[in-house]
Amino acid sequence: MGEAYKLDCDICAYTENIFVGFGLLYMRLESIASFVQDAALKRRIEEFIGNPSTRYDAYDALYVCPVCQAIRNELFIEMESDSSQYKISYACPRCASVMQQEHIENNVPVHLSCPACEKGKLKATFYMDWD
Rank of each mutant, 00 (worst) to 15 (best):
Y5N: 06
Y5T: 06
C9P: 06
D10R: 07
D10I: 07
C12F: 09
C12T: 06
C12Y: 10
A13E: 11
A13F: 06
Y14K: 04
Y14Q: 04
T15H: 13
T15Q: 13
E16P: 00
N17L: 03
F19I: 08
F19Q: 08
V20E: 01
V20C: 08
V20Y: 07
V20K: 04
G21D: 02
L24G: 09
Y26T: 11
Y26C: 14
M27E: 14
L29N: 07
L29K: 09
E30Y: 10
S31I: 03
I32S: 02
S34D: 14
F35P: 07
D38L: 07
A39Q: 08
A39Y: 08
A40L: 14
L41E: 04
L41S: 04
L41T: 04
K42V: 05
I45T: 05
E46R: 09
E47P: 07
F48K: 01
I49R: 03
S53E: 10
T54E: 00
R55E: 13
R55H: 08
Y56T: 01
Y56Q: 00
Y56H: 00
A58Q: 04
D60G: 06
A61T: 01
L62N: 01
L62V: 11
V64A: 15
V64Q: 15
V64Y: 12
V64H: 13
P66F: 07
V67D: 12
V67I: 11
Q69M: 06
Q69W: 10
I71L: 08
N73V: 06
N73G: 04
E74D: 12
L75N: 00
I77K: 00
E78R: 13
E78V: 04
M79R: 04
E80F: 06
S81E: 05
D82S: 14
D82L: 12
D82C: 05
Q85W: 10
Q85A: 09
Q85H: 11
K87E: 14
S89H: 14
Y90S: 10
Y90H: 12
R94T: 13
A96Y: 15
S97C: 13
S97L: 06
V98P: 03
M99Y: 11
Q100S: 14
E102T: 10
H103W: 09
I104M: 04
I104C: 03
E105R: 12
E105M: 08
N107T: 03
N107G: 02
P109F: 04
V110D: 03
V110P: 05
V110A: 11
L112V: 03
L112M: 10
S113D: 03
S113M: 00
P115R: 00
K119I: 00
G120A: 11
G120F: 13
K121Q: 12
L122P: 02
K123I: 15
A124F: 10
F126I: 04
F126P: 03
M128H: 14
M128L: 13
D129E: 15
W130K: 12
D131I: 11
